[in-house]
Design a protein around this nucleic acid. Sequence first.
RNA 1: GACCCCAUCGUCUAGCCUGGUCAGGACACAAGCUUUUCAAGCUUGCAGCACGGGUUCAAAUCCCGUUGGGGUCGCCA
Length: 435
Amino acid sequence: MVIRVRFAPSPTGYLHIGGSRTALFNWLYARAKGGKFILRIEDTDSARSKKEYLDEILDSMKWLGFEWDEIYYQSQRFNLYQEYAQRLLKDGKAYTQKLEGKSGEAIIYKVTPGSITIDDLIRGKIQFDTSTIKDQVLIKSDGTPTYNFACVVDDYTMDITHVIRGDDHISNTPKQFLLYQALGLPVPYFAHLPLILAKAGGRLSKRKGATAISEYRQMGYLSAALVNFLLLLGWAPGENREVIDINEAIKLFDVKNINKTAAVLDLDKLDWMNNQYLKKEDPERLADELIPALAEKDYIDKENFDRNYVVSLVKLFQARLTVLNDFLDWADFFFLKEVPIDPAAEKKFLTRDLSKEFKLFIERLDDLDTFDILTIEEAFRQMVKELNIEAKVLIHPIRVALTGKTIGPGLFEVIYYLGKERTKERLSKFIKRPV
RNA sequence: GACCCCAUCGUCUAGCCUGGUCAGGACACAAGCUUUUCAAGCUUGCAGCACGGGUUCAAAUCCCGUUGGGGUCGCCA
């Protein structure tokens, strides 16, 4: 049997953490089992569906790497739903009803009393009494299908074998089960994923952590890191493995070890994960991702810049970044003509007059035959030895003078990549000239 | 309220099915090492089986209840 799974977002909002985790598990299951991953756009509500949302969902899916094998739009399948509804009507399993104030007639499924048992792949057997279920609208007065009905017709006609979806759909399952039975259709396997909860408690919502995936991207999270983070929300391969790249996840993944407990979204771990991936990532790739932002900030000229230089700087900061965009703030002094000096840093390290020391250091730099990290450091160490002071007494003030900050990469790397001229120029600003 | 789901450190989790290993790891936090600041890295520490009852020689693990959390009850999806 070829496994076919689907992810069915509604373009009435952005793709967020919850949805993308559902997408991930579906996609992963398909890839793990050599099956097909189907994307189904549930755009039956034309009033609330927006192209803007659809584009964001599609872009985010691609960015996350969840390539789909087939894509369908429910809005293009209204005839099909109508057809199946008519069948139930003919069989006397549904009836029509006119709603006050509405023009058309709705088709409504008559719920038959009884008991239903769903065998969920994650939760085991779940029992429902249909007496608690109201008659189900299949087709609304305006001719569009309801969610549960379209879902059943689609899952059947798209040959979906496994329905992997959020916990919040458990109570829809008996309703759908009834429809499968009424239509005489085979019922797929169900796997209900535990929900991802907001840190403040309750469901993810706009106000509570339902940040769009595109926003994480904008903030400078790596898709591989985000996916790895998502993967660990409700699933673990055992053996204390945590940093797992997607190809390995495909090998290890199985619905069997998805857990039942809702997970609380804690972004601290995402930050850590992102740093893990940032450290390993090819600096050339990171540089390419940063280039548009650097150009936008006018740090580089898009048409004419030294890519290798940017790559070198990325290497300098790579291991220190939480999100890629941190680079824009931390490395600004390499691009700006006028470096803003942090007032607190200036007060702490540049209050004392260091004219003599700075002047001497500039001389030493001028004396160098070769200007590289090692020779710069040697010259500096030799100088502080002669001055009989501790290296750090001078390192911190020089860093502030050059970068405007108290934190950053090693000083000698900074000097090297800043270059001799810019180093001299920035140090000179803190040399008091005798009147 | 009715129905359904869930319950291991603050958070993500391993262990539960097939009772017996000081309940393991990671994030966060704290301390230390390293050091040129920050980050990274390394070491150490802090911290948990919700509660009550069974079953058993033995319960995080099996059963029941309580409590707590969550979800669903639309001509939304």
